[in-house]
Lab assay of single mutants.
Amino acid sequence: KKKYVIKVYFEDTGKEVEIEAESKEEALEAAKRLAEELGLKIKKVEIYP
């Protein structure tokens, strides 16, 4: 089964997080949740198959 690796870059902090997920949708949801939890804004998202 294919996994996606999503790199999320946050504004202000210069922080980046990698998330593995089964689908792009799932990964983007996780990225949004994470940003909310951390109180950060997402600057850029890169998706690698």
Rank of each mutant, 00 (worst) to 15 (best):
V17Y: 14
E26R: 06
L34W: 06
Y4T: 04
E36G: 10
I19L: 13
A21K: 05
F10N: 00
A27D: 00
E29R: 12
V17H: 14
D12Y: 13
I42H: 00
K2A: 11
S23V: 03
T13Q: 07
E29S: 14
K43I: 14
K7T: 07
V17P: 02
F10W: 15
A35C: 10
A30F: 10
K1E: 09
L40S: 04
K2Q: 15
R33T: 11
E46M: 05
K43D: 14
L34S: 04
E26Q: 14
I47Q: 04
R33Q: 03
V8D: 00
V5L: 12
Y48A: 09
G39L: 02
L28M: 11
V17L: 07
L28G: 04
K43A: 11
R33D: 10
K24H: 09
I19Q: 02
A35M: 02
A35T: 02
I47E: 08
K3F: 11
L40A: 04
Y9V: 11
E18Y: 05
F10G: 01
E26L: 06
K2E: 15
K1T: 15
K43G: 09
L34T: 12
D12E: 12
F10Q: 00
E20G: 07
K1Q: 13
V17S: 05
K32I: 13
Y9H: 07
V45M: 08
V45I: 04
A21F: 04
G14F: 14
A27V: 05
L40N: 02
E25H: 06
I19R: 02
Y48P: 03
E36M: 08
K3T: 07
A30V: 15
K3P: 15
A31S: 06
V17A: 08
E36C: 03
E37G: 09
V45Y: 10
K24W: 11
E36D: 14
E11W: 12
E37R: 10
L38N: 06
T13M: 15
K41T: 12
V5R: 11
V45D: 01
Y9I: 09
Y4V: 14
L40P: 01
V45E: 01
Y48D: 04
K1L: 13
E22C: 14
E22A: 12
K24N: 06
A27Q: 00
E22I: 05
I47V: 14
Y9K: 04
R33N: 11
E29F: 14
S23R: 03
K7W: 04
S23E: 06
L34F: 05
E37S: 12
I6M: 07
D12M: 11
E46F: 07
T13A: 13
K43T: 13
V5H: 08
K2M: 15
E25T: 13
E20A: 10
G39W: 01
A31K: 00
A35Q: 03
K3E: 07
P49M: 12
E18S: 09
E18P: 03
V8T: 01
G39K: 09
I19K: 01
K24C: 09
S23D: 12
E20H: 11
E20L: 12
A27I: 03
F10I: 01
E11S: 05
D12S: 08
Y48Q: 10
K24T: 12
E20I: 07
K32F: 15
L38D: 02
A21P: 00
Y4F: 06
K41A: 15
I42E: 00
T13D: 08
I42Y: 02
A27C: 13
E29V: 08
A30M: 15
A35H: 01
L34C: 03
L40R: 05
S23I: 03
K44A: 11
A21R: 07
E29L: 11
E16S: 13
Y48C: 14
R33C: 08
E20N: 11
K41G: 07
R33W: 07
Y48N: 07
T13Y: 11
R33S: 05
V45R: 00
E26H: 11
E18T: 07
E26M: 10
K43F: 13
G14M: 07
K24I: 13
L38E: 04
I6A: 08
K15V: 15
A27N: 00
A30R: 11
L38T: 03
L28S: 06
A31Y: 02
I42L: 05
T13C: 14
